[in-house]
């Protein structure tokens, strides 16, 4: 597989949220607006790229038996970095995303890529894989956020497009499930 394919597979063909169904908790939890989805997606991308980089660098030093705990500690360190940086520079977004920032550590995508890809491949392709998967995740979250924002409040990236009241339910919890359900169904249809 060449590097370009390696990069683009995360967007549609192996999109972590819409096809692999990983990381559904943050996808549902933070996608109340497009900007929240994008912020969360980029934070996860950073963790994915950094953890893939470090895991692929140290993979030959880690005994096989303590592989998973070591990966988790590496991931947790980068999550802490993201937490502190976001708290310092984008406090408003940090408050909006709240609990889901520390929970990146248990996001199945991050550990999944470390275990399934970075622990077996070279540094370069691991970083590209992390970047592709992370941006695919950000893409799915931003799409879901945009759909919910436009149906729920008639706006996109907080710019009001449709005047008047919309279906508030799409900004609330039930709308997250329903919008994601239809998005997965649509992706499957186009992927056939």
């Amino acid at each position: 597989m060449n590097q370009l394919q390696n990069f683009t597979k995360g967007f549609i063909k192996e999109n972590p949220v819409l096809i692999l169904l990983l990381g559904l908790c943050p996808a549902l939890g933070v996608s109340t607006s497009a900007i929240n989805g994008l912020g969360m997606g980029l934070a996860t991308t950073f963790v994915l790229v950094s953890s893939n980089l470090v895991v692929s660098l140290v993979k030959s030093f880690i005994p096989d038996k303590v592989r998973i705990p070591s990966f988790i500690v590496i991931i947790a360190s980068f999550v802490t970095v993201v937490e502190l940086v976001m708290q310092g520079f984008v406090p408003a977004l940090f408050d909006q995303l709240g609990l889901f920032i520390p929970l990146i550590v248990v996001n199945c995508i991050v550990l999944g890529r470390a275990e399934a890809f970075a622990s077996k491949n070279t540094v370069k392709s691991s970083v590209i894989d992390g970047l592709g998967m992370g941006l695919g995740f950000a893409f799915a979250l931003t799409m879901l956020g945009a759909v919910r924002e436009i149906l729920g409040s008639g706006a996109i990236f907080s710019i009001k497009l449709i005047p008047g009241d919309m279906m508030l339910v799409f900004v609330l919890a039930p709308g997250a499930f329903i919008a994601l359900g239809y998005m997965i169904a649509l992706t499957r249809k186009f992927n056939k």
Partner: peptide, 21 residues
Amino acid sequence: SGMRGVPIALVTAGILALAFM
């Protein structure tokens, strides 16, 4: 056919969430 499995499960969960609201 397109809705089978996870999509219909998520829509069902949405309706359940509506009930819990």
